[in-house]
Design a protein around this nucleic acid. Structure first.
Lengths: 216, 216
DNA sequence: ATATAATATGACTATAAGGTCATATGACTA
DNA sequence: TAGTCATATGACCTTATAGTCATATTATAT
């Protein structure tokens, strides 16, 4: 947690510091990020930084929290109405929202990715607690709902399947953005036009597998 | 490439250096790894190191090559007889061998994982060329074979599917080893006893998907 | 024994990091 | 006006790093 002094700061200054930090952690991992660069960019003295934060980790935690909150804002209302959709439509909606978030908040997304790649598992756990566990739990929850509705195979090992969905979640993001990176500005509509078919292909495979099957 | 002097070294010394490097890169990413620690562990003077290698990157490339060769040894003979197996059996065999490699060469596996996590994509590409592309290609190759044999759904987008298999490959490894980490020594047989059912579950999902399906 | 070439060495340089601290500033209070 | 207190500052500290280089050592050839 930042120190009290940080929250007493005039808003403009606080914003400068947060902006500088967001920029730094979007471009560098925790270890490669530099307080020197951050204070330079934020136009504050180094000593001042240590008046606001107890150290690098303190700031990093604060920024990661910020990303988490932003994501929650994005998915929040949706998450409270999970039971209204069929399982695979729900999944589709999740992916679509994920894509939208990434495009609208590229720096937040970059921070998240750098965080996930963090080499030190201990640091990761310290900062984000059992978040990946929580993510597994989320998928497990919607899987249970899907099973109850008869949308998915009732024989599945849900623990394993939710793990798989979590991993796939990242994989899909990677794939989609590897396949639409292009120069210049692109409208959100154009992105959807290209991405939605890919999302649907992913979901098709997830639903039906890649094996041959006798169609009815 | 190491300098000529390195290859002129007495074998014992060369081994010490390689061992120290393997150890370092298994425990630290490229950026966090330290030449100081390596020379200390290898019991050579720092100046000597720069007689053998042009720098850190030079050594790192050499070690990554080593890991690649070791893996190829493991899968080499198998890769030359791909067409003898049914697609999903082939996949199963691949996973099993992957598990075996990981258990028998934990440090090599760790080096590989640290490499994959490397933050700097440019460095990654410089060192390993288009290796991840090659991995995609490998799966695409066996997918094409699987389609020709009628083992898999002929309507699949193979590019997307091979990407998915590549990612899944890592995911499965993660899951398996998260779920068997235990204290002390365990025999390879015990590991198989636990892991093989998990592998089979993964492959079942991959083949059939997680959706409900009318059984024949 | 002498000359030559290859290799070994660790003190040294330059650079950068995170973090500290005595001091300076400026705003509010009495 | 004088005193108090929160905040601002940048020089400085320690501890790393990758990489260099003049010098010492050793092996080989004459």
């Amino acid at each position: 947690m930042p120190k009290e002094t940080f929250f007493n700061l005039p808003e403009e200054k606080r914003r400068r510091i947060i902006d500088a930090a967001i920029n730094e952690f979007a471009n560098y991992s925790f270890y490669k990020s530099s307080i020197n660069r951050i204070v330079e960019r934020a136009q504050i003295a180094k000593g001042s930084f240590y008046q606001y934060f107890s150290g690098k980790k303190d700031l990093y935690k604060h920024i990661i929290d910020l990303v988490g909150e932003r994501k929650l804002d994005y998915f929040g209302d949706f998450i409270n109405n999970l039971d209204s959709l069929e399982f695979f439509q729900l999944l589709r909606e999740l992916y679509v929202r994920g894509i939208k978030f990434t495009k609208e908040n590229p720096k937040f997304q970059a921070i998240g990715e750098n965080f996930i790649k963090t080499e030190n598992e201990a640091l990761k756990r310290e900062i984000y607690g059992e978040a990946s566990k929580r993510s597994d739990d989320f998928f497990e929850k919607i899987l249970v709902m899907g099973r109850e509705k008869g949308d998915i195979n009732p024989n599945l090992d849900l623990k394993l399947t939710s793990f798989l969905l979590t991993k796939l979640n990242f994989a899909i993001s990677d794939y989609l953005f590897e396949n639409i990176d292009r120069e210049g500005e692109v409208s959100m509509e154009d992105i959807y036009d290209e991405l939605l078919p890919l999302v649907d292909k992913f979901i098709y495979i997830l639903e039906n597998g890649i094996g041959i099957r006798d169609k009815g």
